[in-house]
Design a protein around this nucleic acid. Sequence first.
DNA 1: TTGTAAGCGTTATCAG
DNA 2: CTGATAACGCTTACAA
Lengths: 346, 346
Amino acid sequence: MDPRKLAPTLRDVATLAGVSTTIASRVLNDDPVVRVRDETRARILEAAATLGYTPHGVARSLRTSRSDAIGLIMHNLTSPMNTTVLDGVRGRCAEAGYVTLLADSEQLATDSGRLRSFLARGRLDGVILHVGHGYHDKLIADVSRHVPAVLVNSDGSGSVPTARLDDVAAGRTATEHLVALGHAAICFIGGPAEAITSLGRQRGYEEVLREAYPDARVDVISAGWTDELGEDAARQLLSRPQLPTAIVVANAVTAAGVLTVLRQAGINVPNDVSVVGIHDAWFAKHLAVSLTTVRLPLFELGAMAADLLLSTLAGKPTPMNALIVDPPPVLVVRESTAPPRPASHA
Amino acid sequence: MDPRKLAPTLRDVATLAGVSTTIASRVLNDDPVVRVRDETRARILEAAATLGYTPHGVARSLRTSRSDAIGLIMHNLTSPMNTTVLDGVRGRCAEAGYVTLLADSEQLATDSGRLRSFLARGRLDGVILHVGHGYHDKLIADVSRHVPAVLVNSDGSGSVPTARLDDVAAGRTATEHLVALGHAAICFIGGPAEAITSLGRQRGYEEVLREAYPDARVDVISAGWTDELGEDAARQLLSRPQLPTAIVVANAVTAAGVLTVLRQAGINVPNDVSVVGIHDAWFAKHLAVSLTTVRLPLFELGAMAADLLLSTLAGKPTPMNALIVDPPPVLVVRESTAPPRPASHA
DNA sequence: TTGTAAGCGTTATCAG
DNA sequence: CTGATAACGCTTACAA
């Protein structure tokens, strides 16, 4: 039933090979320093093979005080964007020989018992935090007190290395596209008001708008990262006497909700209003109207966060801030954007 | 730099409290058997608190030979459905005090070194495998040789407990809806030909079709779980002289691709052809046409898989097959289905 | 070239 | 009610 009870130990291998555990260990970990007779080495390898020996990771960890495991504390794992970041983290860690422990930031932030057990000493060499707004300040402090940590898309207040997307460039790219098409009445539908990524994108939007139209009206609605909140924002827009001619949405999931509500209201996208979303997720082309987006390097963001942590763990000097500028944000034009219709009235 | 170097040990706590590590350990784990003076207990607790003591998980694991960790080996983590399953697994395990190690099935199947390090003895109490077709037979065998394992939506060939969705019922529900609307020429677009979930849904489709029209033509196209493969399948359909009047798609992601290609081809859904998808994912309502779907309990599937494993670990008798029948598949009607148009020709 | 022995931080057994 | 002590399986000075 339980195979571990019978699992062969290093001592078993050593005994079978007729050597001490010392050389057995060294040979199996191919220690570059040790010099053994080829014949001895062969005996050990053979013994390990016939026994089907697997090293006991926990015993090794206890001895070496490394676990070769990193923790990934994520917020809203259901979002396709976050999944991509996770893939980047996990892939890079796996390449470096680390396994990944996954936890949900909400749970850890609200249940200190779970947090403690997640951080139980020795189990994790380091932690990557990709958390939303909310409890995150305390969580970041709690975690980074225990193990080396890095942040993804958060405000590390300088104390913890952080990997970030170039949100300002993303906001600029989206808005520049609309301005180039001739739009001036452009609304920005953002994420949660406190979300640093949303604020960056908003800043890009404002910069471009002001550069193009020095006294343009900055028009911002705070929504959130879900399709429902996008729907709410769109309804809010519809209740106005006049629609903008174009919308920048800070997130593709939110944009999905916006497009659906506009469709339900009989608004034609892009003829009545253009919409551009940020994040070129797989579903963008399949939405109510296929969505023009700005592609952002989410996988690379995760990989970079992993690199920062691995570099810290290796004792190398690590930059406190890594902005992912390669690849840069790229506009992917689909059917949701067009020039504004020629002024029909007023 | 490295907080673990300074981390207080149980001995530190015991020394500060003026007791042995034995009682310190027992008190801190509140062993129900031990009876200590309240005063002693208080001293120990206080010492632990002032030192900020955290138990060393690895040392504990070595001693108890339990890690309170389970491994989740998943395939295609990018799929929103799989993410939901993952959420169910992780949530249930967290409730039971287990942490979750995540790994990608493709990587583990193709790199035996990674598999070995993932399964390093002692690190995992058990493993949940949610793998696609392909290398999975060997992978399942390799894993279950090392630790207790359970399967999700796979063919366990009877040797490993398995949690499954009621795919036949899902296929039936989708097809019954179309039959009730009056459709007879119904095509089924499946997942990969070997995928057991797809085959179950297909069987449900065939059953209902045959029950309604004893000599109806069963019309199946094998696609896959991605939107691109859905697009391919739809193109294949479009190359026929005559379209079916309705389509059942085994997966909502695939259905997204189908809808988009139909839109591009100028086919009106639902007037020219009805489409029903399986899996009521968040994006279903936002697609080219808002998609009628069958809702399946994916979260519960993950939770059930976790339950099977936890029950095995607890030494309880565990069913080899768990079909998730509660909640049952539920039809969610949106705009992609309608009665067939009155016979216009032939 | 190989072996001895200490110790990582716990928990469990057994004795006081 | 409390305390020595051994052991979990491994790595690594240090010896031989």
